[in-house]
Amino acid sequence: MDRILNVENLQVSFHTYAGEVRAVRGVSFELGRGETLAFVGESGCGKTATAKAIMRLWKPPFVEIKSDSVVEYNGEDVMKMDKKRLQSLRGNDISMIFQDPMTSLNPTMTVGKQIMEGLQLHRGLNKAQAREEAINMLRMVKIPVPEKNVDSYPHQLSGGMRQRVMIAMALACQPSILIADEPTTALDVTIQAQVLDLLQELKTQLNTAIILVTHDLGVIANFADRVQVMYAGQVVERGTTKEIFNEAKHPYTWALLNSVPALATENKQELYALKGTPPDLILPLNHCPFAARCEYCMGICREQMPEETTLSGTHKVSCWLEHPNAPKVESFYDRRKK
């Protein structure tokens, strides 16, 4: 794997009046060129916090990225970059699409201007060239009549079109990594399908690596190469999409897979619902974060943090059930077969 991003022991804390919220607690992962990695988990599990930390979008002093965190882009230490290098990193090397296309575009600028901004800044194009390129980008993301729509304001476009503009803007400087933070959550299914098809197409065309932040397992099954499941600021399981869907080992992953009704399930059957809420991230956590909600919880789960067990070259899980002395349990798959 040609590695483009390496993250080790990433820790992000929010300093609030109530205390230090440790939102990301030691996340490590690698990303290969042209690969799609999905982050999945409930709200507040640290998906977005991790994604934004990669670009150092968090501002001190209220948000702190701990000093022993390592983020390396192409072998270069992002944590040590100066302001100037950071600015060229953002947009040029790594760019981001945000969740809500309604609020993340500037309402007072035409979409053309917003795309041109990055092009002029990062690629040193003059105004006319940038405009030409902006029109090309809009054509690439399949905006109808790009020559005309380049002068539209965001409010004149629909939600799906705005998200396309966001994608055009993010890809304008041909970054090698695209971070897509819930790119389709605010969209209808048919538009979602269009946007995902578009991303897939552009990915093969430009060989961009994508970090996809989402809570929609359906989108992941369609789109991602690898998945990491996050809970309470930690990665609890990681693997290829196939491994996560067909051979998941962590009870939390089972719960996630289980709470979506499959189109084949019996109607009005009781859906599996995870009880309780994720732990308060202000409090220290020195045992398995999922223990309180886990139906397989054992004594040791409440005492010690499980180590990450390697099941295959790509598949790793942090759960005491994988310990050689742990009892065999009936998994989600065994139950589903019944």
């Binding site: 299914v189 399908a193 099954a221 369609n222 996560i244 897979l257």
Partner: peptide, 26 residues
């Protein structure tokens, strides 16, 4: 038909076999 085929299904094996119909435009 188009609406149903646009639903992303959280199932890895079923995903490839489903035929996809895409609606153009909005």
């Amino acid at each position: 038909q188009a609406l149903i085929s646009a639903i992303p299904v959280a199932d890895f094996d079923g995903e490839e076999s489903r035929k996809k119909e895409r609606l153009e435009g909005e």
